[in-house]
Design a protein around this nucleic acid. Structure first.
Length: 193
DNA sequence: TCTAAGATGGGT
DNA sequence: CCCATCTTAGAA
């Protein structure tokens, strides 16, 4: 069942980031559905987290994070990689969750074509990689996750969660030490570091 | 207009 | 571990 607005509008971004593990992320692009199980996430909190793009900064780019939960925040990193985030919390409270890795499920052939490679742990094991595999780009900035363009469905499965520090945010000072990265233990699609 | 970054990824 | 990368947002 597709996750509803109320799932995303709750206030604890770290809890939602953990709950998203094991859930099923879909995109429908050019008539093809591709999907994967979310195996790695990171939480970002706009009010007290220097790592968050929206920290003390409300600009055109961060605007979507200040809106209601359940919309996509996509931004371009290093001029090449489209990073997909899920906006959470209510209007005015800028929280988001970065999806860092998925385990491929549906439309594997299409994902292989988009990535110019065969199915392997390398196919979707990183935020830039999964966006390419699912064909998520800046055009999806602001996309409504309760619609059938990009969406998430519930998925019952048992897994053990590992909590650790986030990747690539040294600029955040002491906030770089927050244990806000979550991944499914022993899953081979988790990004390697 | 101009500039500088920037939640990576891939190669060594 | 190191570093090429290059579009875009944000400032001037």
């Amino acid at each position: 069942m597709i996750l509803s607005r109320s799932f995303y509008e709750r206030g604890k971004v770290t809890e939602i980031a953990k709950e998203l593990l094991g859930k099923h992320l879909f995109t429908l692009k050019d008539g093809v559905t591709t999907s994967g199980v979310i195996v790695e996430t990171e939480a970002y909190c706009g009010r007290n987290d220097k790592a968050c793009h929206a920290y003390l900064k409300r600009t055109k780019r961060t605007q979507i994070m200040y809106g209601q939960g359940g919309f996509a925040y996509v931004y371009l990193c290093y001029g090449i990689h489209n990073l997909f985030n899920i906006v959470t919390n209510q209007e005015g409270l800028a929280d988001a969750i970065l999806v860092r890795a998925i385990e491929p499920v549906d439309g594997v052939q299409t994902m292989e074509k988009r990535r110019s490679m065969k199915l392997s742990a390398n196919l979707t094991s990183g935020p830039g990689k999964l966006s390419e595999a699912l064909s998520i780009s800046l055009k999806d900035y602001g996309s409504d996750l309760t619609k059938h363009n990009i969406w998430i469905e519930d998925n019952s499965n048992h897994h053990e969660i590992i909590e650790t520090t986030r990747i690539g945010i040294d600029y955040a000072g002491e906030d770089a030490n927050l244990p806000w990265r979550y991944y499914i233990k022993d899953n081979k699609y988790v990004s390697k570091y």
